[in-house]
Simulated scan of single mutants.
Amino acid sequence: MDKNLHAKVLLVDDEEDFIKTLSQRLEMRGLKVSAATRGEEAVGLAEKQTFDAIVIDLAMPGMDGLETLKRIKENNPDAEIIMLSGQGTVKATTEAMKLGAEDFLEKPVDMKDLLEKINELKTKRILVLQKKSMEEIEQILKTKAW
């Protein structure tokens, strides 16, 4: 994997020290990081911008990670989401996957694993966008009488 990934990532976690440290580690590797400490804030950011990957903590006060995931996916079904948890259960993992999470990683997160997942999601996102563009072009060509 390229040392500098150049992906745009949204980190969502109520632990400010965790977000600060992880943001710095990701930015040192060339990623552009935005952060939110509440689910509501993350939903708002995801409505205004697109991200190559969104990393959401499962356990947060107020709107928890599953609800945040659900709300982001309602507004942006193509959002690529990784869930994080310090106390993940099979039930929570299953629910997150049903709601559209791409993966579920345990805290403390291994940086190599996280970077690999972000790279996979960025690649997948590019392919999805290319496919949509091709479909739009095909639709335009079908409707034109040239």
Score class of each variant (00 low, 15 high):
1 M>Y: 07
1 M>E: 08
2 D>E: 14
3 K>Q: 11
4 N>E: 05
5 L>E: 01
5 L>I: 13
6 H>Y: 11
7 A>W: 15
8 K>S: 13
9 V>H: 12
10 L>C: 09
11 L>D: 13
12 V>L: 11
13 D>Y: 06
14 D>M: 01
14 D>S: 00
15 E>Y: 00
18 F>K: 00
20 K>Y: 09
22 L>S: 03
24 Q>F: 07
25 R>P: 00
25 R>F: 09
25 R>K: 02
28 M>E: 00
30 G>H: 00
31 L>D: 06
32 K>E: 10
33 V>Q: 07
35 A>P: 00
39 G>L: 00
40 E>D: 13
42 A>W: 02
44 G>W: 07
45 L>I: 01
45 L>A: 03
45 L>T: 02
46 A>N: 06
51 F>D: 03
52 D>I: 08
53 A>T: 07
54 I>Q: 14
56 I>E: 05
58 L>R: 08
60 M>D: 00
61 P>C: 12
62 G>A: 03
62 G>R: 03
64 D>E: 13
65 G>A: 03
67 E>A: 13
71 R>T: 06
74 E>H: 12
75 N>P: 04
76 N>R: 06
77 P>K: 15
77 P>N: 14
78 D>A: 10
78 D>R: 05
80 E>Q: 15
81 I>T: 05
83 M>S: 05
84 L>K: 02
86 G>E: 02
86 G>T: 06
87 Q>M: 09
88 G>M: 10
89 T>F: 15
89 T>Y: 15
91 K>T: 15
91 K>W: 15
91 K>M: 14
92 A>D: 12
93 T>P: 06
93 T>D: 09
95 E>H: 10
95 E>A: 13
96 A>V: 04
97 M>D: 12
98 K>E: 14
100 G>Y: 12
106 E>G: 04
108 P>H: 05
109 V>Y: 02
109 V>H: 01
110 D>S: 13
110 D>V: 15
112 K>R: 06
114 L>C: 04
115 L>I: 07
118 I>K: 02
118 I>M: 01
120 E>M: 11
121 L>R: 04
121 L>G: 08
121 L>E: 01
121 L>N: 05
125 R>C: 08
126 I>W: 05
126 I>Q: 08
128 V>L: 15
128 V>T: 15
130 Q>Y: 10
130 Q>C: 04
131 K>S: 09
131 K>I: 07
132 K>S: 12
135 E>P: 00
137 I>H: 09
139 Q>K: 11
140 I>D: 15
140 I>T: 15
142 K>Y: 15
144 K>D: 13
145 A>F: 11
145 A>P: 02
145 A>C: 04
